[in-house]
């Protein structure tokens, strides 16, 4: 029997903690082939080159009701955006932090996932009339995945 998966099987973990209110995640892995074509050839030949992996995720921004708001969208945004180290020096702030993401397909106790150490490359927040405030996060993997069981 074939099992198919949908959004309700998707889960995103940020540094090992399940993120809340995730509406989608996606990733794309690509490889740039190196041409080995020489002048005598009539057809292009290639060898494997460098791989890269990028992706993005969308999360709703919400209030947990406590003193410190720790929703997952703000967790990721805080990893990328940093305030000034000193108030009178506009050019200096802490470096962005890398994050370990696990993009999971979960059904019962069975979890298929890819775990990657990522650099957050973009964070966008959308506030619009008639829409729930959300954040879109883009990331670039730092090296190969640390775990892959998809």
């Amino acid at each position: 029997m074939s099992n198919f998966y949908s959004g309700q099987n998707g889960r995103l973990l940020i540094n090992g903690t399940a993120a809340g209110k995730v509406t989608n995640w996606s990733f794309s892995s690509s490889m740039s082939p190196l041409s080995t074509t020489s002048l005598e050839d009539t057809d292009q030949t290639f060898m494997n080159g460098l791989r890269s992996l990028t992706g993005n995720a969308s999360l709703y921004y919400y209030d947990t009701g406590g003193v410190s708001n720790t929703n997952s969208a703000s967790t990721l945004i805080d990893k990328l955006i940093k305030t000034r180290t000193t108030a009178d020096d506009a050019g200096k702030a802490a470096q962005a932090e890398n994050v370990t993401l696990r993009l999971q397909v979960k059904e019962g106790n069975i979890v298929k996932q890819i775990e990657i150490d990522v650099l957050l490359t973009n964070a966008t927040m959308n506030m619009a009339v008639g829409e729930v405030l959300s954040a879109q996060i883009s990331f670039q993997a730092n090296g190969a995945p640390t775990e892959l069981s998809l």
Partner: peptide
């Protein structure tokens, strides 16, 4: 060592 006999990619 002689000049390598590999075919060039561009000339």
């Amino acid at each position: 060592m002689a000049f390598p006999s590999t075919a060039p990619s561009t000339r």
